[in-house]
Design a protein around this nucleic acid. Sequence first.
DNA 1: TGCTTAACGAGACTGAGTCCCGATATTGTC
DNA 2: GACAATATCGGGACTCAGTCTCGTTAAGCA
Lengths: 148, 148
Amino acid sequence: MPHAEAPRWTTYANERLASEGFRRGGGRAAVIDLLDSQECALSAQEIEDQLRSGERKVGRATVYRVLDELVELGLLNKVEIGDGVARFEAAFPEGADHHHHFVCSNCGKLIPFEDDELERALRRVARREGLVMESHEVTLRGRCPDCD
Amino acid sequence: MPHAEAPRWTTYANERLASEGFRRGGGRAAVIDLLDSQECALSAQEIEDQLRSGERKVGRATVYRVLDELVELGLLNKVEIGDGVARFEAAFPEGADHHHHFVCSNCGKLIPFEDDELERALRRVARREGLVMESHEVTLRGRCPDCD
DNA sequence: TGCTTAACGAGACTGAGTCCCGATATTGTC
DNA sequence: GACAATATCGGGACTCAGTCTCGTTAAGCA
């Protein structure tokens, strides 16, 4: 018999959407499924292309609409690395799996990292400046181990 | 008699450009002058508009070309706060005046801040991950004191 | 003064993201 | 199950930041 597994993001996302009063729809489900199966962040274009070649076609308008909704609900992180294309990745509740990104200036690879000390420093800064921090992004640029 | 003042960014930028073998040109000079007189970061569009209504017209291609050159030389910081528009602000040598930004999610105000502890944490992370850090950006989002 | 070539600008073009609006599907109700 | 109300969806036109081309202008050197 299988033992309990960590709940999939799809499950969590669908529960959250239901509790917020959203109806279930094929387009949204397709986008959520695709995002759940990804290693790293996908751009809206990549999502649109992958879904177009799949069995469930989804229009561009729907892709952007769904991404906006999910980001708004905190179910998705919007990652912008400065190339003019927004990328999206699944976000778990309570900031579990919270991380930032390193972008290799040579090969373009995206490497996630996390650091408690960094997070503490950010909270301290916000407090000192009298700012109520809702979210934050940290992007490091440079050479990854492979390209150095 | 006037006593010595801190050198203006324009001066620093022009010296740097000269030493890199750039010729002097009216378009570049106009962009540099405008940027030097700014409190906070300007978008390419704002630069183009302000110069168009001024006495020295500068074409869009020139604005973008000059901005790219200056960023490449480290004379300008490119600031991206996630609204799809890149902004630019004068950067001083040796990372003097190095800072990051807080974006108010309510009024959109851009507030600069700096923090040594944060910088140390970033360097530590890069070292730990085996990454050669060339640059980094930190963006905090939330409510500014006025909007809270 | 002339030559070489960097700097410039008008405007066409690209591509991510937005918007409109008619078509379709989900859910609650009878 | 049938129906109404309305959320969801998608084709495609549109916006707009940023890029590219190419002919013109002008800086700097001999």
